[in-house]
Design a protein around this nucleic acid. Structure first.
Lengths: 241, 241
DNA sequence: CGATCGATTGATTTTTGTCAAAGACGGTGG
DNA sequence: CCACCGTCTTTGACAAAAATCAATCGATCG
């Protein structure tokens, strides 16, 4: 099912099967995007939103020299484009990282979904989750050193992947280059390489061949001052990570 | 009028006088908060939201040692608490910086406002503006050096203050300590002091006795790679800054 | 008037970035 | 099959940016 993972494992926003059916019915098209492909460009007028079904996408802002800061990472279940419904266009770019399958939902269909007050609240909720994650990313960049940032990011991604069934709680596939991680954590890719080595040497976690394994979850979380509250996970999901 | 500044100067979201009246009618209480006072604590269940009428507030996340990272600064016209309507509680703290006047709107009234589809979209829009600002703050922390961060922040705040009539385009009151600025920009307050001196010495801008004066707007914007697109200002407002 | 808070400055250390180069790995085409 | 190529990873040496430590100064407040 296309919308299986949308809001999955999130507290107070579980979709009823009727709501899920409404969303499924609103999908106009399924699309596959190759890896590393621009999907939405900043400023481009948008008349549709997209739900990630499979793969990974990211939002980013370019600096003057073409270097980019990733401001969000999107997994299956994320309704990436939803803000464009109310904003009309986005101020940042969205691109695929891996090969990605997305479900397109035209804005006029979203308007219809929104007419259902409870479903409307849940769509709003989904965009607020993104904002909450943005705030914690700000904390990460503003208050943590490089190793803390990486530790925090890996804990977060593990928790999110677990919520949608893509992590067993300690191990998950993450097909990003060290440079991608660097663009997320606001460090150079060379420094990212050093940090990953340190994490490995200290036995906290490993990141090899696109696969993350968290060896000491408590220590890693402590190193990154990670606290999952902001993910608004439901109790069952929160307990298991 | 209480809601005068809400969404003022923002593209595609100007309130009609009827919508404004609806919001005014939803206000249950006007409150004054002393400077430097906690207003909402992370995790606290909320049944009301608040609109800043006068003064300045901030959102922040504490680290392990009690140091904080500011993740948003709120001016008059900002509906600070709106996310709590859909989320139920917040994952960060909100506190006043200066003495602040706020208008309280109970959540059940927001539910009523939301029943008006167009007004509902504008409330959603307001929370998406915050998210857009979060993303640009991420860019600031992740990609700019300390001076760039300060330059960017001052340009942003000038533009926002101008949009609500609190800056003449170059000068505005900003009653923050250097430590507050440091908590926004993710540097130490000592370093912030040095950066402000450099900005002064280079003739880009001055920050003295709670008052910012931008001397060379173009150069300051260039130094901070500031581009106001993400503020979704309407054309008249954007032209003037 | 002493006390407190914020601003300021200098000296030093730590962290991270920059530059340069080499190694690993997978895919392609001869 | 293998040589070549590009991309990603890894490492070392050095430079730059920012943090830390230690004081002093100035204004405000009870």
């Amino acid at each position: 099912m296309i919308s299986d993972k949308f809001l999955k494992g999130r507290r107070g926003a579980a979709l009823t099967s009727a709501e899920r059916a409404e969303i499924e019915a609103a999908v106009s098209e399924i699309k596959t995007i190759p890896p590393r492909t621009l999907f939405v460009e900043a400023g481009e007028p948008l008349r549709r939103s997209a739900l990630v079904v499979e793969g990974m996408m990211c939002r980013y802002i370019d600096d003057r020299d073409g270097l980019r800061q990733l401001v969000a990472l999107h997994l299956p279940g994320d309704f990436i484009d939803l803000p464009s419904f109310a904003l009309g266009y986005l101020e940042h770019n969205i691109a695929s990282l891996t090969q990605t399958t997305i479900a397109i939902v035209p804005h006029d269909k979203i308007r219809t979904l929104n007419a259902n007050a409870e479903l409307g609240r849940k769509l709003w909720f989904a965009t607020l989750l993104d904002a909450a994650m943005h705030r914690v990313w700000l904390f990460r960049l503003g208050r943590l050193d490089a190793m803390g940032r990486v530790a925090h990011f890996l804990c977060e991604t593990n928790a999110r992947m677990f919520a949608v069934g893509l992590s067993d709680g300690r191990r998950f596939a993450l097909d990003l280059t060290q440079n991608d991680l660097a663009e997320i954590c606001g460090v150079t890719s060379i420094h990212m390489n050093r940090i990953l080595r340190q994490l490995r040497e200290e036995g906290l976690c490993t990141y090899r061949s696109s696969f993350v394994e968290i060896l000491q979850p408590e220590l890693l979380a402590a190193r990154g001052q990670f606290d999952a509250t902001y993910l608004y996970l439901d109790e069952a999901t929160a307990r298991s990570t």
